[in-house]
Design a protein around this nucleic acid. Structure first.
Lengths: 340, 340
DNA sequence: CCAAAATACGAAAACGTTTGCGTAGTTTGA
DNA sequence: TCAAACTACGCAAACGTTTTCGTATTTTGG
């Protein structure tokens, strides 16, 4: 309602021109120390708060970063945002956060809302359904700084932050093999996802290296509903030629696996070993505790934000390089992949 | 960088005045249908996007709601935000999200940043450390619409949304008693928190009703660090007069309890039964599965947003009533409180 | 001592909207 | 038929900043 006093009123209270007050508050060399002090103390006294919209209008900058994620109830994305917020706050930036709920149409709507300059930059992780990327291209060609993390879009020439998906999947799969698994299944969400492809490559290469062949029926591309996924996995576990090891590309599919296993008389890790990409704090208290590949979520968020802010605050910074920056994950071995 | 074309340029392309274009786009009765059509199609063609800051400056409204939470890696808060976002998006509102990390000083800084009209309203859950409430009072007295949820601040006369904390705690405790518990402990974060007090009352009253007395050593006020909490709980479990039932006010203390139990040779639910306030999707796959009191998080978020938006979009809406709106939780009984 | 430079400030424009007011041209009504 | 009302649009101000330019006063330098 009442958004406090304006710079004009503050100027009037000081018998100065608004321009002088503005310069004093922005510590301009053109203003004497004495005047600066007077202005600052009066501003304090009257609790003057500059109107951010007037500023944004004038400067054509919003000091705001938009974060677009596919899921909010997800420790990985939550941690990434925490990382972004930390750096953003240090530099006086605000965060607009949008959840696409894994829905491309929603993603398009949100990006279209961000075309008008409401945010100075966008950091996002795409939907598992995003194959048409015209909306991303549009934003990028408009010159709005855009970086991707985790679920990246390779076709857009900008900087992307991911973890070492190939390597982690390779190592994870190899770990299963070393623990004695012969028939290893791969669980993931969408075929289109960049990270899926990389992780599948890692899984596949590890199998080949061990002279095992990846069976098509062992690659499970799951849906959105947890119940459906549990059903799908259950079917796989009850099939004649069931897997004895599982590597899951997403946390929640590991959860679904645990749930499916409960409906069988299989025992983890004896009959089935499982490892998953995850950021759960409670992986350790699951029974049996869950072996995880943990992505450096906060770090990814921090790096995204650092890069963006560098670009936004320096005068003539070049565009983002078309490159992929890799921040390695860490494998935490727990009971779910123990030999005995 | 380039924020597209302005209404002036659009007007020039149409040989019209900016005012006419503005009115046409806002569907004013003063503009003929023919002109409206022309304007709209040209706006489409040139991809005209109104500048939000010019609008905000002019209207003194930002179409933005600020959400302030103490923790982001928390299913409850994530779900609440999802609920808020759903309703906000329907009405064209954007969400600025801030995490206080349970730090009052950060909370103060954030609220001070919100004084300048960047957001039209605030919906928040306070820190577990918030006892000095001058910053909240300041915002409220400034006339900025403010609602609380879950962690509410009773002293501020506005509308608050909570779950039936007293009743749920009472029922939860009673459930433990009926399952045979005699010595029930209560785990929580801070004494200052509104919800802690209510939940403790429910716990305490349930004990009294069953002729049990709440022992002081059975009320554990935990810290921020998960490791410390696990230690604290472990000590309680190893004490001579250990509890045989636990009701936890916060999800993560139940997790810590599971972790502590692992370091003893106690068995849930045989030696210790446990129930917790929680929004975990995976409570069911913990071993043993965890009995929970689930708060209606999305609904709480939706209701907060509905109320705010009603106030923001109707012309002369009265101030929020000083009232507490209760949305009941649901108790989900699982193995952790089973008799056998 | 006086021109030139430096200091410290003010006036006004600009950012992109929306809106109150004014006004041609047209329609209405008795 | 002609004043009154209506229609459809334009002009200009306003929102609160920042910044360019201008200028009165003081300081500097030879």
């Amino acid at each position: 309602m009442n958004s406090g006093i304006s710079i004009k009123e503050l100027a009037a209270a000081l018998n100065l021109a608004p321009s002088t007050v503005s310069r004093a508050l922005n510590d301009s060399y053109e203003i004497s120390e004495a005047t600066k002090q007077k202005v600052i103390s009066m501003a304090e006294k009257l609790n003057y708060q500059p109107n951010p919209f007037a500023r944004s209008l004038r400067a054509n900058k919003s000091r705001t970063i938009a974060v677009v994620i596919p899921e909010r109830i997800n420790n990985f994305f939550a941690k990434v945002i925490d990382g972004i917020e930390e750096i953003a706050q240090e530099h006086g930036y605000h965060l607009l956060v949008y959840n696409t709920h894994e829905d491309v149409e929603k993603e398009k709507k949100i990006l279209s809302l961000l075309q008008n300059g409401r945010a100075d930059a966008i950091v996002m992780s795409v939907t598992s359904q995003t194959s048409d990327i015209s909306h991303l291209r549009k934003i990028h060609e408009r010159g709005l700084p855009l970086v991707f993390f985790d679920r990246i879009c390779g076709e857009i020439p900008t900087t992307k932050f991911i973890t070492n998906d190939y390597e982690s999947a390779y190592k994870g799969t190899n770990h299963l093999i070393q623990q004695g698994c012969k028939k290893i299944a791969f669980l993931t969400l969408s075929k289109d996802l960049s990270i899926t492809k990389e992780r599948y490559r890692g899984y596949s290469d590890a199998l080949k290296m061990a002279n095992l062949t990846p069976e098509p029926t062992f690659s499970l591309y799951c849906k959105h509903s947890d119940e459906d996924n549990t059903e799908l996995i259950l079917k796989l576990l009850q099939s004649e030629n069931r897997p004895d090891g599982i590597i899951s590309s997403v946390e929640k599919l590991a959860i679904s696996t645990y749930q499916a296993v409960r409906k069988t008389n299989l025992k983890i890790p004896y009959d089935l070993k499982i490892i998953t990409f995850s950021n759960m704090s409670i992986a350790g208290i699951l029974n049996p505790s869950l072996t995880t590949i943990t992505q450096p979520a906060e770090t990814i968020g921090q790096e995204c934000a650092k890069l963006l802010i560098k670009k936004l605050t320096r005068p003539r910074q070049p565009d983002f390089l078309d490159q992929i920056i890799v921040i390695p994950s860490q494998i935490q071995i727990r009971e779910s992949t123990m030999v005995r």
